[in-house]
Amino acid sequence: MTTAYPTPTPAPEGHHAEGHESHNLTGFIIFLCSESVIFLAFFSGYALLKTSALDWLPPGVDGLEWQMPLINSIVLVSSSGTIYLAERAMAKGSLWGFRAFWLLTMALGAYFLYGQAVEWSSLKFGFTSGTFGGTFYLLTGFHGLHVATGVFLMTLMLIKSFIPGNYKGGEQGVQATSLFWHFVDVIWIILFLLIYVWQRS
């Protein structure tokens, strides 16, 4: 049994995009905005605890070394550049150019994680050494987790690029991963300023 049902005139362009694929980037950007508030909470908690502390540094610790984290910062900031180049290569249709710069970005990300691990192992304080130790490991650890997630996402995207025809006409996953990577980068800059540059209490 069927019933006559009027078909409306064709939709004006804009609102009703077909398929779910096209909403992914919108959803991801909304998620990133929300995610940034967790960092905002941690940063403001750090600032509040630091400014109100009587003895900020635990006994036997007189500050943080900044040379190695600075190298790490340069590595991470430049990886934002290489991921941009990877995206541009893809836009120009050069899949191998994309893979090369993408792999370089992954390598820089991995180096950052390695540098972070080396720094952690050389420190004389732990997670439970007062609010200084707690916030230090919380902030660097939570950020490091994001870097690791970024590298993982990039690995997925790299594998996907070998599926024939997958990346014809751009790929939202690549855009989203790249956006995430820039986000992780900006968070690191704020974190570096807060923890390593602002040392006097």
Binding site: S52, T128, T131
Partner: peptide, 16 residues
């Protein structure tokens, strides 16, 4: 984990 973010004994702040 034994941190002291909110524990005044370790320099933390419950009001935070």
């Amino acid at each position: 984990a034994g941190t002291s973010f909110y524990d005044p004994a370790g320099g933390g702040d419950p009001v935070l």
